[in-house]
Design a binder for these strands. Sequence first.
RNA 1: GCCUCAAUAGCUCAGAUGGAUAGAGCGUCCCCCUCCUAAGGGGAAGGCCGCAGGUUCGACUCCUGCUUGGGGCACCA
Length: 596
Amino acid sequence: MKEHIAELISAAIDSLKQQDILPADLSPRIMVENAKDKAHGDFATNIALMLAKPAGCAPRELAQKLVDALPQSSSVTQVDIAGPGFINFFASAATITAVVADVLSQKDAFGLSKVGGHQKIQVEFVSANPTGPLHVGHGRGAAYGATVSDFLAAAGFDVYREYYVNDAGRQMDILATSVWLRYLELESLELESEGQNGIAFDFPSNGYKGGYILDIAKKAQDQFGDRLVRSAADVFSGVAADEPQGGDKEAHIDGLIAQAKALLGAETYDVMFDIALEDIRGDIENDLGEFGVAYQNWFSERSLTRGGDVETALKKLTDAGHIYEEGGAQWFRSTAFGDDKDRCVVRDNGMTTYFASDIAYMHNKFERGFDKLLYVFGADHHGYLPRLKAVCQALDYPLEKLDFRLVQFAILYRGSERVQMSTRSGSFVTLRELREEVGNDAARFFYVSRKSDQHMDFDLDLAKSQSKDNPVYYIQYAHARVCSVMRKLAEHEWDFDQEAGLAALELLDSDYEKNLMVALARYPEVLENCALHYEPHVMAQFMKELASDFHTWYNALKVLENDAQIRNARLALSEAVRQVLANGLGLLGVSAPEEM
RNA sequence: GCCUCAAUAGCUCAGAUGGAUAGAGCGUCCCCCUCCUAAGGGGAAGGCCGCAGGUUCGACUCCUGCUUGGGGCACCA
């Protein structure tokens, strides 16, 4: 309908051009918007205001000329000029009711868009280090990334969801070593129970202390038996003192890592490393799976080194003259592309940096032929943007192919009380705990109901409450209500005659019903908007509005009227509302229950 | 210090490419089930859109400065 009105306006403009009222070289962007006030009709355009200056006449005067030049249309019943020069359009009843038939015939497909044109877009999100379970901070990135991906797919993009697994680097070594030390503690207990001497030592202050480490240590026991046992004297031989003993905790843990590799041998160490990695990565995958978040690919950082990607990418940068050597290390001249400082890619000890992997990963993504790369980061990563943009340019790919979205943190509340989260000592609130407490539906909805770059307060009590205060239940209840009405039909020994209902839609002439139909018609553009701007919260907002419009109508007018025509028409509208609610909730990763 | 995101009703938040009288929910106050789920609905009150300039027919929206708050600024990952 908007397109139709835009065409009418365009025709009017052409006609005014021929009359030399408007300059012929003018090609304005015609904006048609949904009128916010009923008195302003159904659609409005500000075109006369925008063209007043080039036309050299007053806006209202130009508006009148445009209106006079508008072609006739059966779907427009009235055209007004209002305010400073707005042109308001009133749509015919048939135009407004048409959406109900559209929804009922297209069902799940209603609202889907082809605007993406099968562009290949890669979405990287979460990508938390596999050193422990996901916590509630990751949850928002997961919900947001998954939802945006689903919207993009619904808008006709070919979406490829990817989790970058940081399975290389020091943190992973700390993890593997932590597992080994827990393993030694377990073995020690067994030795003591057999009357032998245990292996006495203090767990490093910088090690991973979560309970899950112990579980992994047990798996290492299952696999290795006591073959990984070494004496405390050997393990701590030559290792710098830990912080509580007045030493340096970083040097201490690095020493332990070196000892682990030396005492176990590279091969055995790697096996234990992989046990830890796969256990935690698998747990994350399982956790996200239950949360309705699935990936096409779990991309291993180590594969970049092993597959030569890092080498290839660095060579490309070197050949292009973006790498220089200083102090025995190699640096990427990111300042040439607006970064604050140059970034090290190869340290003086010959090790490539984490950033070198990032370069290789981006290169790898582009090589795979994606039209667009979307990075979803936690807000704490925003410092990475300049250097990644620099990489993109240095690799000679257009910057427009890169998009970033930063997800701000969520602060948990229980009522008005803030829930303290501490990553220390493993006492954080995990995503899994959150899901178990409030349910997947509420968690998914709450996470994306705010603009991603907005801090959010997540009230656990509200998310759990089964009342109208809770938007998730409010929306789901609207869906369940329609289903309930359909069940009641049978009790009256009536059937829903869809064809008769569609034919009688013009009987639904109340403002309640018109509002509902106008809302339904907005759904496709809301969906498209969400996708193109990566803003799923708009749909969350829309769902609340649609549910509200429905509840208002439901309360004011009875669906199951004795009059069959009215009844079938209202059933058709109800079913259309239910379908759109189901479609929207589905995209948000929230279930649409038939009964509550 | 530099970068970045924010600041809208008592609270939590919407406000798409600048448009008409800035909107919801909660909370407060009134009202509505002999009726399809009251897990719902209707109404009232509540605003210097952080401050100050600028751009223009028009600014919550764009630009600049300032104030306040979140988060970043490592040969760490």
